[in-house]
Simulated assay, not measured.
Amino acid sequence: MFGRSDKNNEKAEAEARRVEAMKASIEGALTHLKSHAEAGNTDRCEAAAKRLVESLKNPKLPTDYSRQARGVLDSLLLHGFMKATALAAKGALDAAKTDDIELRSKKIKEAREKLAGAMKYKAPAEFKGQCERLLEVAMLSGGVKQKGPTKAKPLDTTPKVENRAKMSGEALAAQDQAKAEQAKAAAAAAAAPKSRVPG
């Protein structure tokens, strides 16, 4: 009689240790998932979430714990998709500012995909509205300025005139002195006797 109860206690303790080990593993996976969500890496977030969902299906885990862990998992996935959407929208705006039309289009497409994922995980409606406005601004920006000369604005080849009105008196005197020295050197070179080569 006593031996049987000891075995039952050992089995119960071993089972409790296994459950605690599973909980610790799930907590570690959630921490790992949080780092991916902070970086906006949705592919890794979804892969990690898939493994976590399989772990949470274990019937030995308490239902309250499973429900709470799923709530944390969903909130982390939502955060990851919202972060990825914001990063892609900012990338689209930056590309539009630098007139990189191809990158702008790529980032807009990426932002729309990430926004759809964020809405799947119940992102707020205000977030969707803000992202749509940002993407619209990005679509309407860039691609307007022509690089280089055009027919309306040809290349300006005229020499630039010094603005002597804004020069200080010392700078003006130094400039006049330099011109005078150049003129003296030119006059001296012209007046110097030409060397005769005996014929």
Rank of each mutant, 00 (worst) to 15 (best):
L73R: 06
G148D: 05
K145M: 15
G148Q: 04
C45F: 04
G3H: 07
K57F: 02
L135R: 03
K107R: 13
S35Y: 13
K147H: 12
F2Q: 06
R70I: 01
D100F: 03
C45I: 10
G28M: 09
A29Q: 11
A21C: 03
F127S: 11
L87Q: 15
G40S: 05
K90Q: 11
K90V: 01
K50N: 15
C45Y: 03
M1N: 13
K128D: 11
K184I: 04
T150G: 15
G80C: 14
A49R: 04
K23N: 13
R104I: 01
L76R: 07
P149L: 04
A171S: 06
Q130M: 15
A171G: 01
G129N: 12
K179I: 04
G117P: 00
E170W: 10
L155N: 13
A174V: 07
A96I: 05
A49G: 03
K160M: 12
T31K: 10
K11H: 06
K194E: 13
S75D: 14
K107L: 06
K106Y: 09
D94N: 14
A92P: 06
L73C: 09
M1W: 08
K122P: 01
T42G: 02
D156R: 15
D99W: 08
T63D: 15
E136N: 13
I108G: 04
R44N: 10
A111N: 01
A180N: 09
L87W: 05
N9W: 02
K106C: 04
E13S: 14
K107A: 11
A96Y: 02
L61M: 07
G142A: 04
G80S: 09
E170Y: 08
C131K: 02
G143W: 01
V19I: 14
E38A: 08
A21N: 09
G199V: 11
E54S: 15
A21G: 10
G117K: 04
A49F: 00
G71D: 05
T42K: 01
A69T: 15
E27R: 06
S35V: 06
Q146R: 10
R70Q: 10
Q175G: 02
T42Y: 00
L76P: 07
K122T: 14
K153I: 12
E10R: 14
K147C: 10
M22R: 15
E170M: 03
D99L: 14
K179A: 11
K57I: 01
S25P: 00
L103R: 13
D100V: 13
M167D: 03
V137P: 00
E162A: 08
R104S: 09
T158C: 05
E126A: 08
K60A: 09
A47Y: 01
A48W: 00
A24D: 09
A186W: 07
S66Q: 12
A152P: 00
A116Q: 07
A178R: 08
A12M: 13
K153M: 11
N8S: 13
E162K: 04
A189P: 00
L134Y: 07
A24G: 04
A165Y: 02
C131I: 14
A125V: 11
G117L: 05
K122W: 08
L33R: 02
A39C: 01
G129S: 15
D74E: 06
